[in-house]
Each structure stands twice: as C-alpha cells, then as structure tokens.
Design a protein around this nucleic acid. Structure first.
Lengths: 192, 192
DNA sequence: TATAGTACAGACAGGTCTGTATACCCGTCA
DNA sequence: TGACGGGTATACAGACCTGTCTGTACTATA
C-alpha cells in the first residue's frame, strides 16, 4: 500500500529547498521540473513520489515559506513589549530585508502575478498568507490603540507590498527602505 | 531588403490589442504566440513580420501601456490647478481603478515578477515606467511645497504599487481602495 | 538472510513552445 | 497587364514541458 511517504525525508527537504530558491529567483513558470531535479540531485520519480504534480510542489513551497515568515516574525517582532513597538519593529524588519541584496520581493505576490486566477490553489495559499498578515496588523493596531485599526492595517499592508514590489522591480538599491519611515508616520497619525 | 512594415497597420494594432489583454489577464509566460494568433485572427507570419520575437512584442505592448498611462494622466490629473490637488487626484484615480472589476493590478509589476533579471529588455521598460512615475511624484511634491519631496514621492509610490498588488492578489473587493486615504495622510504630514 | 522502503538512472510519451519556410491570394498602382 | 506589398494558410523543425515507466542499488530491520 502506497501511503504518504515520510514527511521530513531528506530528499523531500532538498527538493523543497532547491525548488524554492529557483521559483523565488526566476519565477514559477520559468523553472521546469527537469531543472529542479538536476539542481537538487534527485531522481525524477522521487520528486513525483513526494509531490504528485508541479502545482503541488508550488503549494508545498508556499506553505513552507509562510511558516518561515511567521517563524522570523516570532523571533524578531513578537518579543517586543508593546503592540506599538511590534508594529514599528515589523516595518524596520521589512525595510531592512527589502533592500538587502538577496531580496527579490515577495514570493506570494510573484505567484499571484503568474497565476492570476483566484481559484488557483497556489494563489489561494498566497491570499491566505496576506490575509493573515492583515489580521495580525489589525490586532496590533487595535492593541496599540488605533482609532480605526482596520484602516491602519490596510494602509500598512499597502506599504509593505509596495516595498516588496520595489525590491523586485529595482533590485537592492530601491526606495523600498522608505517603508519604515512611511509606516511610522501612518502609525503616528492613527494612534493618538 | 527588409523594410520596417507600416507602423500603424491594422493587423499590428490588432495583434498589440489582443496580446495586451491576454498578457495582462493571464501573464506573459502563460500566453503563447499561437493563442495570440488564434484570438487576433492574424496569421503567424504576420505577427513575426511586425514583431521579430515574442520578447519584442512584449516590449512593444509595455511601451504602449506606458503611453496609455500618461495619456490618462494628462486627461484626468494634469488639468487640476495646483500640485497638491494633482497629487490627491492621482491617488483618487488609482483607488478608483484598483477596485474596479477590470483591474488586475499593474502590468509592469507583473512583467518584473515574471522576468526578474534587471537586464531583461521588458523589465527595463517597466523600470523606466516606474522611474517616470517617481519623478512625476517628486515634481508634484516639490511644487506642492513638501519639505522632503523625494521622500514623499518614494512613500507615495510604495502605496501605489501596494494598491496594484492588492488588486491582483485579492481581486475587485480588495483593500486597494484605502490607497487614496493613506496617500492624503502622508501628503498632509509632508506638506505643512 | 529476506524483505520492504527509499532513492537513483534514464528512456520515453505526448503535448506545447517559439520561430521558420513555402505557397497562395488580392487589391493598388505604374 | 503585371509587379508588388501585405496578408493568409499551413506544415514543420527543434527545443522544452509535465508526467510515466522500467529497472537497479542501497539500507534498515525483522
């Protein structure tokens, strides 16, 4: 009987890692499975045992990226004592990351660009990721005492995605670093 | 000798129009030339006479989109009497457009997502488009009396691209409409 | 030692991609 | 009348795509 293969096999990890880097750097449609196989040093059948299709691989990669995002968030932002400080630290983090040489923008936005149909499985993972961020921003805004927490959260998410967009559009020397300053200005205005 | 074919032939227009809609709605890599030919009712050789390669077609489409953008800008924003009003009207326009059902985000950002290399010809067209917007925003900010025109312009561009991103990510019912309000808040703070 | 699980190696099927080649059609204008 | 510019129609080359198939090798454990 063919049950689900070990969840944390080394080959599976290797595939996800390699595929993720290629997808992120070159795009989802631009990278074929042959390339992923060649660069991860894994047999084709191994890939297709772990991931029934390329789409499944993309979904798995995005879910992993989402987990990674929240892990970094937990390390870098969550420990701060007040909601206000957490909001500000989040945008310091985004600014720092968005201008770093390795940053090529937001992989979820890239996916939504390449798979525009809202029904696409990977697009749905991307939507859920952004919705979770929006919700977190709203929680923080509320806790920080914003008059209109939803409004502040939505404005801040616009800035954040603008920064990721700038990073992919212009490369490391972009204006994305401006995001921290702009976010703090919106926060200052929204929280009396 | 292979002369340049008429610039404004009907077939050429038809190809650009059809290809543009397909590229915008489904993505650049997702749409093949066969599809463009079928839907524009044009022979393959005609397409390749007007555009030596698909990349050339993409570049031509983006340049056309850029011209279209500035035409709309000239009609809707330019006539306003003051720089401040022009800035605000620009973001009213973006907000309105970004939540409209036909809007699927920014085609230049989609292109940069699909062709991340900064050297890619189409990516360069996209960069020039965004740089022109940034420059226009800086001019308007300066004329409106901002203390730091460059800073305001960069912050505003983050918001604008965030709105386009939201439109493609979430569809018509997104938070992109928040962009006008957020922009006006930044403008109010930056211009005494 | 026997067996099950996992992965590798590589060929292959069937389809799609971009781009080219060839032959034909038809209105315009010299 | 006849050349020619612009377009049509269609076949084709060759690369690349996803996904499948067969067969082999290694390893852990019963």
């Amino acid at each position: 009987m063919n049950r689900a293969i070990r969840e944390n096999s080394p080959a599976r990890e290797q595939i996800l890692e390699t595929a993720g880097q290629l997808f992120y750097r070159e795009g989802f449609r631009a990278v074929g499975v042959d390339r992923i196989i060649a660069e991860s040093g894994v047999a084709k059948m191994t890939l297709y045992k772990h991931f029934p299709s390329k789409d499944d691989l993309i979904v798995a990669y995005l879910e992993r990226s989402n987990q990674h995002f929240w892990k970094l968030y937990a390390e870098r932002v969550e420990p701060l004592p007040t909601a206000r400080k957490r909001l500000e630290a989040l945008f310091d983090w985004v600014a720092e990351r968005a201008v770093s040489p390795a940053c090529l923008g937001c992989t979820f936005s890239v996916n939504a660009a390449e798979f525009p149909s809202l029904d696409s499985p990977s697009h749905q993972v991307a939507i859920r990721h952004k919705q979770a961020i929006l919700q977190k921003l709203e929680e923080l805004s509320l806790e920080a005492g914003a008059k209109d927490p939803r409004g502040l959260a939505e404005s801040l998410l616009l800035l954040m995605d603008g920064a990721w967009n700038a990073a992919r559009m212009f490369g490391p020397g972009s204006h994305a670093g401006r995001v921290a300053e702009a976010a703090k200005m919106l926060i200052r205005q929204a929280i009396p």
